[in-house]
Design a protein around this nucleic acid. Structure first.
Lengths: 186, 186
DNA sequence: AACAATACGGAACCGTGTTCCGTTTAGCAA
DNA sequence: TTGCTAAACGGAACACGGTTCCGTATTGTT
């Protein structure tokens, strides 16, 4: 670590401008906010975006990395603080749903088969699937749920259930997720 | 009924050409197949597509109407032929999943908030939600499941779970749907 | 055969992602 | 300070797909 080849000061400045602008744009227009809008809001040209974040996924990952990390780290903590692994799993999934539901379009982007979102996909799965697997295993070991569900499937399923949750009052993603988790019980 | 203002013969011909071409394109490229491709395959200009099917949703609905009708009609039949309404519901949902999983991108289009898909949304929901509600009510009445789940929520949830199922071997949409339905039980 | 209504084709337009290259600027060294 | 070079920038230009529009062609009728 620490082997950054000394980026220029203006480059560093523009990078944070872009992150700020992207975060703001994502809130108002969702993660599909037009590249030009983000560039304008950051006061840079579109070329600069692509130089710093070659794909949209890179930008999204950069913006949400902190929150994803926090979610990943919460897994073991919930497991340790709960006598029931199934309960810990439910609470952890709840955190994940909280995260997704408040990000317009993120859940959709997460499952898009578009090549540009490959990195996004990979990052989320790499970081969260192991945590999910740990919780799932613990619940199986405790005899609370049946085995046979791949962590990756569960993660994708929960992600999918959250699609469109932010712009559709008569759709209750959380209720469905709860039912899904309930369905895991013996 | 039968009050069509006598469309011209060439118009009728083009309409079936378009439906055939669209059905073929949907199979190979998904329901997001480029308009120009469909027009070319049908041997007509793009203007002709828009004249016959003002929005993409109209085209999709026209292509899949038969199958949706069949699914809707299967609901009451399954209910009548099953002693357990919950089992009937599970089987009906299974039919719906079969339908969705084999249509590239349809599940995604179904929940898109894009205005062009409004009609699609409306058609599917209008046709299937009542059927789903009937099955759900019967299962509640039989004391098999708990009340409180809106039919529309269930339909959307199942639709969401099917997103991306056709192009991702390590994602098992049906397993998740089964868990969801299982979670409904008392 | 002539005509009006209907339908057609595809060029043109628009919005968005992406690339490319001439210009500017930061950092360094004389 | 002043050059100089590599790094970084900006935005025009291109690609691509949806959508519109209007001059032209076809149908059906009189």
């Amino acid at each position: 670590m620490g082997n950054q080849p000394k980026k220029r000061a203006d480059a560093r400045r523009n990078e944070v401008s872009l992150l700020d602008a992207a975060a703001a744009a994502f809130v108002t227009s969702g993660v599909d906010a037009p590249v030009r809008d983000i560039a304008a809001k950051a006061g840079v040209g579109v070329g600069t975006i692509y130089r710093h974040f070659p794909t949209r996924a890179d930008l999204i990952v950069a913006v949400y990395r902190h929150q994803v990390e926090a979610c990943a780290e919460a897994g073991p903590i919930l497991l340790a603080g709960n006598s029931s692994p199934h309960k810990a799993l439910a609470e952890w999934i709840d955190l994940f749903v909280d995260f997704l539901v408040t990000k317009h379009g993120l859940a959709g982007a997460l499952q898009s088969d578009n090549a540009a979102f490959q990195t996004l996909h990979a990052y989320f799965l790499d970081r969260l699937v192991p945590v999910c697997g740990q919780l799932l295993d613990a619940a199986v070991a405790a005899g609370e749920i049946k085995a046979g569900l791949q962590p990756v499937t569960l993660m994708r399923g929960v992600g999918n259930l959250c699609i469109g949750a932010s712009n559709n009052p008569d759709y209750n993603a959380r209720q469905l997720v709860d039912l899904l988790i309930a369905g895991l019980r013996h």
